[in-house]
Simulated scan of single mutants.
Amino acid sequence: MFTDSHCHLTFPELASDFDAVRAAMAAAQVTRALCISTTMEEFPDVQALAARHDGLWASAGVHPDSEDVHEPTEDQLVAASQLPKVVAIGETGLDYYQMEERKGGRSVADLAWQRDRFRTHIRAARRAGLPLVIHTRASSDDTLTILKEEGEQGGAGSAGGVFHCFTETREVARAALDLGFYVSLSGIVTFKSARELQEVAAMVPEDRLLIETDSPYLAPVPYRGKTNSPAYVPYVAAKVAELRGVDVARIAQVTSDNFTRLFPKVSV
């Protein structure tokens, strides 16, 4: 019934009790999930996990905030994309959040390696014929600019993809939609303080909407502050349904249909 379009089941918080996580997913009617790669070192475990289990799929890529890790070439990403159950490239994108505190006082100019990595992933996705999983934090202008410069404007030959765990403004959401991307909402949409994000949840066209947990992080209310799990994605669906004035079953259906449309390899 429900699909979690973005989670990290190989992270220790969930991998250490994987059988219980799967049981909880089944009890919550969460039948499918996309397991996300954040480094190429992690990717073999992500792909192997998806390959072993029905209802799980994998992405191949390096998170923009991952440093001192293997830097993949286009060829390496394309090769990874050809493995069983790999349906997306990413997560990739840009993250300029708290540069002074978290990145040693570096400037945007000092993060050119992030932009180079992002371009590599975009080009690999186009070659592989797979969609991108986009992470953007405090960097939406550059994220959108690079996508446009690399030809990602929704036309023929574009990789397309999803802006995951969306936390930006209505204007950024509209710009992403105009480029042909989907928008995925996480447990943040259930937070009382997330009023602008709740407006985004109400305005995204039904056929471009996804839901996710980004677990083990960002658990929705009523589990905020606890370890998140794909079993909690129905709480995201329920809040989105409330904001859009529809039944939660409708959100479950359309987001699952959108997942299949965006990631067509899941039905192969």
Rank of each mutant, 00 (worst) to 15 (best):
R244N: 12
Y235S: 07
F2C: 12
A27E: 06
R195F: 04
H121S: 07
E152P: 15
Q47L: 04
D17I: 01
L218D: 06
R224M: 08
H63I: 04
A231C: 05
M1D: 06
P230G: 10
V162G: 12
S267V: 02
H63W: 09
G151F: 00
F2G: 10
K239V: 06
H135Y: 13
L243R: 06
F259H: 06
R32I: 00
A112H: 02
N228I: 01
F11W: 13
A173K: 07
R52L: 00
H63T: 05
I122H: 08
V233Q: 08
M99P: 05
T38H: 04
P131R: 01
F181K: 07
L132P: 12
A28V: 09
F259W: 11
R52D: 14
L147P: 12
G129H: 00
D75E: 11
T255L: 13
A109E: 12
A238E: 15
S5V: 04
K85G: 11
R137N: 15
I122E: 15
V69W: 11
L210R: 04
R261D: 02
D142T: 03
N258R: 03
R126A: 01
G245K: 02
R123F: 01
N258F: 08
F181L: 14
E206N: 14
P44H: 08
H164N: 09
V240C: 13
A109V: 08
C7N: 04
V221Q: 13
H70D: 15
Q98H: 15
A124R: 09
E67K: 11
E196I: 04
Q114Y: 03
Q76K: 07
M25T: 03
D75I: 01
E101D: 11
G90N: 06
A156Y: 02
Q98D: 13
G61M: 00
D207G: 12
R115T: 09
F263E: 10
G105F: 03
I146H: 10
K226Q: 15
V21A: 10
D110P: 08
